[in-house]
Each structure stands twice: as C-alpha cells, then as structure tokens.
Amino acid sequence: MTISSSPPDPSSLWKPNRKASKYVQRVVVWIFGAFALVSVATTFGIIMSLMLETINFFKTVPIWRFLTDTQWTPLFSNPQYGILVLFSATFLTAIIAISVALPLGLFSAIYLSEYAPPQLRKWLKPALEILAGVPTVVFGYFALLLVTPFLQFFIPNLGGFNALSAGLVLGVSITPLVASLSEDAIYAVPESLQKGAYALGCTKREAIVGVILPSALSGIVASCILAISRALGETMIVTLAAGQNPNLTLNPLVPIMTMTAYIVQVSLGDTPAGSIAFLSIFAVGMTLFIITLIFNIFSFWFVRTFREKYE
C-alpha cells in the first residue's frame, strides 16, 4: 500500500484468496465423498464376508442338503444342516409377531392420526417412541421372565422356552414401527379425499375404512413388510425366550431355534475359526440376509408400483 494524499485504492483492501478457497473445497469434497462411499463399502463388505465363508461351507455341505435336510444337528458325529429347521422357527416367530403388530400398529396409527386430540397426540407419540427404543435384550427378559410364566397360567403345557411368548413380545416391539410408518402413509392421503367421503354421507369410520385406508394401502403394506423383515432378523428376544432347540415344527408351544439364535449360540462358544460350525453361521447369515433383502426390495417395489399419484 502506498502512502499518498489521495485515499487508498479500495481494491488493495480486498485480497480474496479464491484459489485457496477452491482448494479447501476440493479437499472437503474428496473427504466427504469418501465418507459417503463408506456406506457402499459396508454393503460390499457384508456381501463379501458372507459369501466367502458361505462358499467354503458349501464345499463341505452340499447346498442341496442344506436346503432339503430336515434336521439341524451340527454337533452330531454325522452332522446335518437342514436350514428348514431354523427357517421354520424364524418364520413362526415372525408370523406370530406380525399378527400382533399389524392390528396394534395400524389401529394405533388410526387413533393417532384421526381420533387423538392434538394435545394428547403430543404425549402419545414420544411414549410410543420410548417403546420403540427399548433394547431388545430388555424385551427378551420380559418375554422369558414375565410373559411366559403368565401364559403358562392359561396354557399349562407351555414350555419354559417357546415361540408363542417370544413372538408376542417381538410383535409388541415392532408395533411402533408399523404405527409410525402407517401413520405417515395415512398423513400422505390428501384431505380432499376425506372431504369427498364425508360429502357422500360417510360416517368417520366409513371415511377411514372406505377411503383413507385404501388410499394409504401401499404405505401400510410396505410398513408391514418392513416390520416382518425386522422380526425375521431380530435376535435377542428369540434367543432368550424361544430357546436353543432346533425343532422342525410350527407348534408355538415348544422350544425352537431361530436362525439368529443359532448364530448367537455358536458365537458364544469357543468355535475355532474355519471349522465347519464356524462357517455354518455365515451360511445361516447369508440365508437371513437374502430373505430380508428380498422383503426390503419387495416393499420398495410395492410402494413404487402401487403408490397413487395425487396431484
């Protein structure tokens, strides 16, 4: 800056370092881009780690025996790995769970969105979120130590471990998921449809059952599918309350072992890496991953295909 009688040249006060700003931005974009790629790497990592060990597993146990055997006896001298045994158990608990969660969750969503006064709603929603946030190990405790003894009061031949109690509690644990996703779907229905229903002489229930729920159907079905997928992959409740007995049965009163419970059982033991039992948890994990992936894709596809476009 030169000293002169005239005021200083204003441009000398401005020294934007545009090059540096651009450089900083470029570095930031690269770092953040790498962070975004972590999610892609996670998917890749999941698929790779499941696949490699699953392939090793199938080198010893032929895949068709895995899919068709009706026994799960990894500790026998002549071990059999019939995934149907674990799958039926997983399926059974999930079915029980969704038959609790669908009515409870859907009716809760209807109450919250259509009936609850705004003041009450402000309290009910966080309360349901607390229910959603209860760790599953706590639900497991509840199922094993309170619900099962309670049910044994009515069903004397109910086992200490059983699919019924695990499934019921699992259902309660996924109810908030069904409720909140269904409520979102109900909210997305334009108010004009509700008004249209009332203008035809509908009562409130008729407007809800006849117009609002059918209009929200794609979202409700999607919430239901996602809830089933969550129930299939849930671990602690079924491990604690449903037992560790690989039974091929759909009887909800006896102990069973789900896919997730098997993975926990092997993980808790001292199974050497590379042994066939160790490899088997990856094969079971792969099966579970594929099943839940199919459910998720189906739910995604369902919403895409059946969502009504309202202008």
Binding site: I46, T235, T260, V264
Partner: peptide, 10 residues
C-alpha cells in the same frame, strides 16, 4: 433394514 446380527458377521 439389514438385521443387526449381519453387521456382527461383517
């Protein structure tokens, strides 16, 4: 939506 136990295997 991937079950948490799968992350355990990862």
């Amino acid at each position: 939506a991937v079950p948490s136990i799968i992350y355990g295997l990862l």
